[in-house]
Write a protein that binds this DNA or RNA. Structure first.
Lengths: 165, 165
DNA sequence: TATTGTTATACTCTATAACTATA
DNA sequence: TATAGTTATAGAGTATAACAATA
């Protein structure tokens, strides 16, 4: 029996369905994320933030500035510096001076980094496909659509200016 | 544009739907969890693990032993000691000696802790209901069912002995 | 010997804020 | 003044391992 089952095991009736849904979603996300983190660590000796940063760079062949990475990864600048430092030490990314602004740097994948990311992304995709392998194509589409509504609602809470009129 | 949109913004076609679904689920869970953490901190000066521990105790009026809490919260024993210490310092829970085993203690909510948890759980329920307020009753049930299939599959990965025959 | 619980330690991840260099 | 980036620090959250008391 897991956390969700236990929390609701004795008196489910008094909880609204929304609460049961939330606990289940949280359990799903945690189970998959924990698996992904463990596999990134065991198979590639890396972490989710490092993988995430490399994924951003893989989408931007010309590289990204630190503040762009910060915005896209939704973490503050100091953390991006730290994650970038680790990847630089591993030879997977490098900082390139920006000609027009001597304060700024673009971070780009090295050849080695691009090759490794390609391999990691490939594996990662397999893990995720496996995680949803019990769902049909149609069920995946339904889940995606319903979660889209949840996401839009949560975003409107986080950013009240949107959708408030 | 958020992380999900950006990661897929330029070349969506090369990603399987499973990957898009996973990013969306992760975004949803993070948005809601971040909101819950912030509100627990701002309105009740507490954290998610402390709330979680109290929730476990609220379901077990006779209290729970440390190792039971550890198992149910899915964290290791040392952490339960720390979380419990914080709640004891706040007067919300207390350690009660177990008659038959002088090594063990049960942790129980104090009267004050039970009252406060009741208030917090009430608020928390409202936040979650709000988070899913754009979904119909039927859509909530569908989401719950589909995530149940994902959860069962992830559990079978985590615990291969189950469901392998 | 095994178990209950505590203590100590370390690591990841994150935020805030002070700071440097440049714009 | 404002911005790009770094550094320093703090705190949440977690795991591991050594340990004391008891079974």
């Amino acid at each position: 029996m897991d956390k969700e089952a236990r929390l609701f095991g004795t008196t489910p009736a008094e909880h609204p369905e929304e609460l049961r849904l939330w606990l289940r979603m949280l359990t799903c996300a945690q189970l998959i994320e924990t698996q992904v983190r463990a596999r990134l660590r065991d198979q590639f000796d890396t972490t989710l933030p490092r993988f995430d940063l490399m994924a951003q760079l893989d989408r931007a062949p010309q590289g990204l500035k630190m503040n762009e990475l910060s915005r896209r990864m939704m973490v503050t600048g100091g953390n991006v510096t730290g994650i970038t430092d680790q990847l630089v030490a591993q030879g997977l990314v490098e900082r390139v001076a920006v000609p027009d602004d001597r304060r700024a740097h673009r971070v780009v994948l090295t050849t080695q980094g691009r090759a490794l990311f390609s391999e990691m992304a490939n594996q990662h995709e397999g893990w995720i496909v496996e995680a949803f392998s019990t769902l049909s194509t149609r069920e995946i589409a339904t889940l995606h659509r319903l979660l889209g509504m949840v996401k839009a609602n949560a975003h409107s809470d986080t950013h009240p200016s949107i959708g408030t009129v």
